[in-house]
Amino acid sequence: MTANDKREILVFAEQRRGRVHPVTIELLGKAIELSNRLPLMVSSVLLGRDAEGEAQELIYYGSKKVYLFEDSSLYNYDPILYKTNIVALAKEINPYAILFGSTHIGRSLAPRVAASLRTGLTADCTNLSIDEDGAFIQIRPAFTGNILAHIKTKTSPSMSTVRYKVMQRAKRDEKREGTIVKMTPLPNAPSWEVIDERVIEGINLPDAEVIVSGGRGLKRAEDFKMLEELAKLLGGVVGSSRPLVDEGWIGKEHQVGFSGNTVKPKLYIACGISGSPQHLAGMRDSEMIVAINSDPSAPIFRYADMGIIGDIYEIIPKMIEKLKRR
């Protein structure tokens, strides 16, 4: 069988300001794994401007083919322009599946593509596989993380958005070879005119190596300062469980859990967090989990590596002191 006979598993290579988003590399990692279960060719689609360098990178990360749409109108994200070109490509190559990162771009673009192709779309998957019959299996947490739903798609292609920081990244290898297929972008009326664009320097929870999170054990919004001090000493950032975000004590970008960020840092310190399924869904893959909670029956202790039963208002200042003394 030649490569041309294989159906493709197509990865949407999201670029922001000319750089491919790291979730794309995770999608390629998964696509490569799936292509070993069923004879599939891993390909990707990249829309942007002067993007050949990034297209070559996608080949080093395992794309056999990169469909490259280049036009100045594609540098910024535009749901209609992106959709138009991806739909045209999908109709031409009839892929087995199309994968998108579960970012704001992926989660707003994929629905338009799916509705246009009249095909199924599964949101925010945490795992993908292929069964014995060659059917595509999409797994996503549902019902606030209490259950995992296994979902199949009756139509073709199967489409999924996939959560960031869940799949293993593909390995980069400059010996890999592939083809960059230059596509002619189709015109369409854009969604909007971008009047102004800016990049904000917010915290980036999914990329943090150390996270110190607070939960209902905190008594006041100001007490996040204590967690922040501890996080800083460890070179980390502050996270939060959902109730405190809902209370407005801290911004949503700090939220860890099913409806917030999924994280897997080297160290996760849960302070006064009981460990609801919805929270655990977002952090249980962390390398080292430390829990501090006054309630010995708190579920978080079953998911932690180390736990101290006690008052966070006593223990955290002591820990800060110990770290400062070093």
Binding site: R16, R17, N76, Y77, T103, H104, I105, S191, W192, E193, V194, I195, D196, E197, R198, V199, I200, E201, G202, N204
Partner: peptide, 14 residues
Amino acid sequence: ARVELENIIYEVEA
């Protein structure tokens, strides 16, 4: 409208 794409913010007209 202000469209928020995580760390990238667009001010758009449509």
